[in-house]
Write a protein that binds this DNA or RNA. Structure first.
Lengths: 332, 332
DNA sequence: CTGTTAGCGCCTTCAA
DNA sequence: TTGAAGGCGCTAACAG
């Protein structure tokens, strides 16, 4: 910076003013400084400026895992949104050490970022409060804590919509495969189950849900369980696509035609669902991420209250795995 | 920090020494300071300490895209590796503005990070050089530039291994579906094609490759093209799983049994490949990321030369989509 | 072993 | 419209 000042023949303050784009500098000087900066390919150190302004121009994003497809999409949206506001993104994956000493303490969030975005972390209200000590705005995605800023989809309505789709096709024996707890996203799990239940109740039909264990074979076993009853369902809604895909494998191996004998649908619009022509519910994670970033920026600018909650719509993706039930009873 | 010093009744330097864990402080004082810091839940500001040490304790990771499954896995590995060294991770997605003014200039990498890791960016040697100005170590993954640090898989050998697998099953008409350029990863594309070619040449068989356009239907069309000849292949190797999945769709719709009439295999070990029981080549992206992070840390510590190149092994994943060819000619 | 001093690169008063 | 001085929170070199 000193070099730039010398080269442009001005003082440090003037360079600072030009670099920040604040008014109060004559156009001639401004251009001279700009040229000098370009020639020396000088950029201000956010580190140093942050030291005095208190702002780091960085946003911490906390995810439980990074591998599942879903998180990449959300991050893509966040990345776009933050770049627009010229904010850098600090990424923390805390899956394994969840709870262990509390990532909010372990992670050097304290003076490292201007805001924190969590993705599907399913924080307790208590954990949220702890973050408040740091005096950093918090935006939650994939969950909703009253009084907190956040973005998520309407899981209840999404699952209800999916269920109604099956109902509207004429199905009456509609089963639901949910995931067994212990994993992350348990709030979303509960919401989706609630949506299914509401839609079934609304139609005056009995609900019928089974749980599948985590892992790749959970859906297979759960579907096997559904098939082993006297009156197997004619339609099955899975809590998310991975389960549906796994369940689909059982059907394929058993030679049960989809949607001929059983209609099957998932939730997420995972790309594997597309590969298998599976009807599903799209929740556009990228849009969620973009909305979260936008909300964060607004809160940082004071343009939004720190408890604004945004709900993203879901969309039914109709594909080949659902159809009206056959007239005849039975599977074959 | 002043508060901690006051509370412990020592000077700022002593607090600094304790917080950094450097020797030269009596155990008694050390504990007193530690307690004071804990009570005030004080952590050092990396921003401020970085200003004087020159180290930011941050590593910038640059990816072209974030959505594809592959990147999430690599990031997971990088994240693990960096956390171990207590380094934060700055994430930059530059897909859209690739080249546009040069991300190395646009991005405020200059004083923001101690090192840069690129993931499948396929940089030119010139672009690498430009990063050198910043005097920041660069680690490339998914590509190898001579004289540069990097980690990637042996695409040539992986593709060759895959091809030999098909050859060993007894196939003689083995086709290859590659991706049409213009996209990222073009270096890897070239390597895989080279591997296929080498294996075919080694077996004294004619190579037979088609290109598919990007997008979800590229593989479908390419497979259609292969099927429209007089003597369709009995085995097909796709450059990556997404293409294989797409090609698989064509086969399914055409009622051509896999592997009965045509053996099909991909490359990547994408989860969709597992869903479709597709034989493929695993490249464990998470291990790549972990290795890249480890290498970065070593270079930062001066424990590794800044041009160390690490090659990760690939592994054949045998599943149900490949088998020996039938005796009879023809598809049906 | 501990405290003092002088910056790291920048922004924010103030005064000119 | 511009410049000079002080300090953001911390570390490094010294002195005690």
């Amino acid at each position: 910076m000193r070099d730039v000042a010398r080269r442009a023949g001005v003082s440090l303050s003037t360079v600072s003013r030009v670099m920040r784009g604040v008014p109060g500098v004559s156009p001639a000087v401004r251009e001279r400084v700009q040229n000098a900066a370009d020639a020396l390919s000088y950029v201000v150190s956010r580190n140093a400026s942050g030291l005095v302004t208190g702002r780091t121009c960085r946003v911490a994003v906390v995810v439980p895992f990074l591998q599942p497809w879903f998180f990449g999409s959300v991050l893509a949206g966040i990345s776009d949104g933050l770049r627009e506001a010229d904010l850098d993104m600090l990424l923390y994956q805390v899956g394994d050490l969840r709870g262990q000493r509390g990532w909010s303490r372990t992670l050097p969030l304290r003076r490292n970022s201007d805001a924190v975005i969590t993705v599907s972390m399913d924080l307790s209200a208590q954990e949220c409060d702890r973050l408040d000590d740091v005096d950093v705005p918090l935006v939650l995605t994939g969950q909703h804590v009253p009084g907190r800023a956040g973005v998520s989809i309407d899981d209840v309505e999404g699952a209800a919509k999916a269920t109604r789709h099956l109902l509207n096709l004429g199905h009456t024996r509609v089963a639901y495969i949910g995931s067994r707890g212990g994993a992350w996203l348990s709030l979303s799990s509960r919401s989706r189950l609630a949506g299914y239940r509401a839609a079934m109740a609304e139609a005056g039909l009995p609900e019928w849900s089974v749980l599948c264990s985590p892992g790749d074979e959970g859906g297979e076993l759960a579907m096997g369980e559904l098939l082993s009853g006297h009156h197997p369902p004619t339609a099955v809604l899975a809590e998310f696509d991975a389960i549906a895909v796994s369940a689909h494998r059982t059907l394929r191996r058993s030679g049960i035609p989809v949607p001929g004998a059983i209609s099957l649908m998932g939730f997420d619009n995972h790309e594997t669902a597309a590969a298998l022509d599976l009807t599903t519910v799209d929740q556009s994670p990228r849009a969620i991420g973009a909305a979260a970033a936008a909300l964060t920026v607004e809160i940082l600018h004071g343009a939004a209250p720190p408890d604004r909650y945004v709900e993203m719509p879901t969309q039914l993706i109709l594909r080949q795995s659902t159809s009206a039930p056959r007239r005849t009873e039975g599977l074959s």
